[in-house]
C-alpha cells in the first residue's frame, strides 16, 4: 500500500470514524509525510469540533418559531374548504369554452377562404354589383358555371362580379374543365357573395368561348 492510498484511512481516523489499523500504526513512525498529514487532520478535526460547538450554542434559541406557527394558522384559517368554488369554476370554464368555440366557428365560416381560389392578381379594380334574385345553383348559365358546395345566397343578397386571373387548379376545384393549353393564368369573372365566397365563375377571353369545343 502506498502513502497516497493510506491518506483516506488517515483522514477517517482523524475524523474519529475509525482507529488506526496495525499496518498504519506501524507505518506512521517511519513516514514523516503521513505522520504530518495525520497530525494536521487531527488538528483540523479539533478546530471543526470547536466551530461545531459554537454553532450549536449560537443557534440554540429559536426566536422565529412562534411567528411561523402563527403564520401557518393564519394561512389555513383564510383558506376554508370551498368545493362549490371549484364546481362553479369548472362550469364557468366549460361555458366559456363553448362560447368561444361557437364565436370562433362563425367567424371562421364568415371569413372562410374561397375554396382553392388562388388569385394571381386582380386584373381590374372594376367591381360590378348585382342583386341576387335566385339561388347560387341557378346562377349557371351559358357563360357562368355555379361553384359546387357553396352556401345558398340569401334573398336580396348583393353579389359582385370580380375580374381576376386564376390558376387552372383553382378553376378545376370549382368544377371547371381545364384545357392544359390555356397556360398558367386564366382570365375569369367570379360572382362573389357578400360573405366573400365565390358562387359562380366564367372564363373570359379566347379560351372561354372554346371551352366546350376543346373537350
Amino acid at each position: 500500500m502506498t502513502c497516497a492510498e493510506r491518506i483516506g484511512e488517515l483522514v477517517e481516523c482523524a475524523r474519529g470514524r475509525g482507529s488506526l489499523g496495525r499496518e498504519l500504526s506501524a507505518h506512521l513512525p517511519g513516514c514523516a509525510a503521513c505522520a504530518e498529514r495525520f497530525q494536521a487532520e487531527r488538528e483540523l478535526s479539533q478546530q471543526l469540533r470547536t466551530i461545531q460547538a459554537r454553532g450549536v450554542a449560537l443557534m440554540a434559541e429559536d426566536t422565529r418559531r412562534e411567528v411561523l406557527m402563527r403564520d401557518f394558522a393564519d394561512l389555513h384559517r383564510r383558506r376554508p374548504a370551498r368545493p362549490w368554488v371549484f364546481a362553479f369554476g369548472g362550469a364557468t370554464a366549460l361555458f366559456a369554452a363553448i362560447l368561444v368555440g361557437n364565436v370562433a366557428g362563425r367567424h371562421a365560416a364568415r371569413h372562410a377562404p374561397v375554396p382553392a381560389l388562388r388569385v394571381k392578381a386582380p386584373r381590374t379594380t372594376q367591381v360590378v354589383t348585382y342583386e341576387a334574385s335566385t339561388d347560387a345553383s341557378e346562377l349557371s348559365s351559358d357563360d357562368f358555371t355555379a361553384v359546387p358546395y357553396t352556401p345558398p345566397l340569401a334573398p336580396g343578397e348583393l353579389v359582385r362580379v370580380v375580374h381576376a386571373d386564376l390558376y387552372p387548379e383553382a378553376l378545376a376545384s370549382m368544377g371547371i374543365d381545364i384545357n392544359p393549353a390555356w397556360g398558367d393564368e386564366i382570365p375569369t369573372e367570379v360572382v362573389v357573395g357578400e360573405d366573400g365566397i365565390p358562387r359562380a365563375v366564367r372564363i373570359i377571353g379566347p379560351q372561354g368561348g372554346t371551352q366546350s369545343d376543346d373537350f
Binding site: I51, R54, L58
Partner: peptide, 20 residues
C-alpha cells in the same frame, strides 16, 4: 457575534476564526 458571548470569548481564538 460571539464577541458578546461568554462561550464565544472562552473558546474563540484566531485559528478557529480563520478556519471558519
Amino acid at each position: 457575534a460571539f464577541e458578546h458571548d461568554i462561550l464565544g470569548e472562552l473558546i474563540s481564538n484566531e485559528a478557529t476564526a480563520a478556519l471558519h
